Amino acid sequence: MLALPAGALLGLVLIATVPPTLSSCIVLTQLVGGFTVWALMLSLALNLAGVLSMPLMLAQVLESGDHIRIDPVPLLRQLSLMVLLPFLAGILLQSRRPVRSDLPLFQYLPSGCIVLGVWMAMSDSAAVFRHLELALLLQIALAGLLLHLLLMTLCWWSGRLLRIGWQGRVAMALAGSQKTLPVAISLLAVLEGPIGEALLVCVMFHFLTLFADALIAPRLPGGRAFGA
């Protein structure tokens, strides 16, 4: 419907498949008065479940394309190394010797790793970005925002159908619509196909939705403005 090229479509499908962020949706839920613990548990559960669901979903959705070959086994291996292994290692380290999370190193290390990963991935596809047209960038931005709003609406109204209070629906809407960029980049690294445009879609989706949610979340029914 949006007439996107194959690489951009790959990025849109992939970013829709990855789990939510591990921090942004939780912080935003807390700021607008939602159930922070719900956002934390949903984010954690979806990230763990995504290790199994993402390879299967991508293979199922993209199997009809001739330009992309999806093998679930390398994806499963990559996700296990990126999600499960650090999770289990963190639990083991904390149980033996708790680490202070307020140390400057641990405050800036996650964001620094994300920035470094995005920079390295985009540098590898620099040739593709030199020939991008403004019309395509606008198409990608529109597609990303529409996907985000669709996911947020589905999660919000699912909560209403289940008769969940607005605090829980806020957590569901944010955790169900925001997407984690590092996992998306990690998956692109093991795919065979045009990943330059796909990477651009993932990066634009991540940052556009963060700005969009900063405007939308306080205006959700029952939500409060930042700092209230």
Score class of each variant (00 low, 15 high):
M1L: 08
A3H: 15
A6C: 10
G11N: 07
G11F: 04
G11C: 05
V13K: 01
I15Y: 06
A16I: 06
T21P: 01
L22G: 05
L22Y: 04
C25F: 01
V27L: 03
Q30T: 07
L31A: 15
G34Q: 08
G34V: 09
V37D: 06
W38P: 00
M41D: 08
L44H: 09
A45N: 03
L46T: 15
L46K: 09
L52T: 05
M57H: 10
A59K: 14
A59Q: 11
V61Q: 00
L62K: 06
S64T: 14
H67S: 14
R69W: 09
V73Q: 13
L75S: 05
L75G: 09
R77S: 06
L79N: 02
S80N: 14
S80Y: 11
M82P: 02
P86Y: 02
F87R: 05
G90F: 00
L92F: 09
Q94R: 03
S95N: 13
S95I: 12
L103V: 08
L105P: 05
F106L: 05
L109P: 02
P110R: 00
P110Y: 00
I114D: 02
L116N: 06
L116C: 13
W119R: 12
M120V: 15
S125L: 12
A126E: 13
V128N: 10
R130W: 13
R130F: 12
L132W: 09
L136I: 06
H148T: 10
T153W: 11
C155T: 13
S158T: 15
G159N: 09
I164D: 04
W166Y: 07
Q167I: 07
R169C: 07
V170F: 07
V170W: 07
T180V: 01
A184S: 03
A184D: 00
S186C: 11
V190W: 07
V190Y: 05
I195N: 11
G196S: 06
M204A: 13
F205L: 02
H206Q: 05
T209M: 06
A212S: 15
A214C: 10
R219H: 14
L220I: 03
P221T: 07
A225R: 14
G227Q: 10
A228I: 11
